[in-house]
Design a protein around this nucleic acid. Structure first.
Length: 240
DNA sequence: GCGACAG
DNA sequence: ATCTTGTCGC
């Protein structure tokens, strides 16, 4: 496992963070289909927090997209880099997630984020942000509709309905299990919405949530539990 | 101005 | 996200 420090120049105020989003969102690529489902690697990333101890743990779990077998995994711990503010989630999660991705022994392939991409107040959610910073294809799969509206998808697994910001389709409500609450899929970077939904469905053969986020969620919780009380070591805190 | 709001 | 036991159902 690796430890991270909040990057120099990381936004401190909400105004600064919004300005960063407005600047970076021009670099999102939306006209690529992305990798075909069922091929190559698919990586789930997730983060767990202990705000009391000021510790954050991230995990990245690489799956074989065809078999959903775990190919590789990594974790990283750091200190909380931003408070939770709806619309600014990325600033809370990204430094540690990047460290976990960097620690992987193999290419991540498509990255599946726990949250949103395009479906965001400024159209630049966590998945978009992570995609722009890494250049990797990314998608967002969220458990809640956030501020967006949608109609109930039909009962069978695989049914979808548009996730709407007014009349703009910013994502899709996708039912991954018959008659169970849908997940909310949106595009991050370099992946089409159709493809993002196909990947999500392929990654969720048995549970509501994709295996990528289930695996990453379990791993980052373990990493958080195993992190040193009071937070990870800081450069210079120990000898030499 | 008030409430809602990914994780 | 996190705090938290049992319980109904396949």
């Amino acid at each position: 496992m690796t430890t991270v420090r909040t990057p120099a120049g990381w936004p401190v105020t909400e105004e600064e963070a919004r300005a960063v989003q407005d600047r970076l969102r021009t670099r999102v690529v939306l006209d690529e289909p992305g990798p075909p489902p069922g091929t190559g690697h698919v990586t789930g990333v997730d983060v767990a927090y202990d705000d009391e101890r000021d510790v954050v743990a991230a995990a990245a779990v690489v799956l074989d997209a065809a078999t959903l077998d775990v190919v590789a995994r990594s974790t990283a711990v750091g200190r909380v880099s931003f408070p939770y503010v709806p619309g600014l989630l990325a600033f809370r999660e990204i430094p540690t997630v990047l460290a976990a991705l960097d620690a992987l022994p193999c290419p991540p392939g498509l990255v599946v984020c726990d949250g949103y991409g395009l479906a965001h107040p400024r159209r630049f959610g966590l998945a978009s942000h992570l995609g722009v910073l890494t250049g990797l294809p990314t998608i967002g799969v969220a458990k809640n509709p956030f501020t967006f509206t949608h109609e109930e998808p039909d009962t069978p697994r695989g049914s979808t309905s548009p996730l709407l910001a007014g009349r703009e389709e910013v994502g899709r409500a996708l039912r991954t299990r018959d008659a169970v609450k849908p997940v909310f899929v949106s595009v991050g970077h370099r992946v089409s919405l159709d493809n993002a939904c196909a990947h999500t469905l392929a990654l969720a053969p048995g549970y509501r949530l994709p295996e990528t986020t289930r695996r990453a969620d379990a791993l980052c919780r373990r990493a958080l539990a195993g992190a040193a009380p009071g937070g990870p070591p800081v450069q210079g805190e120990y000898g030499a």
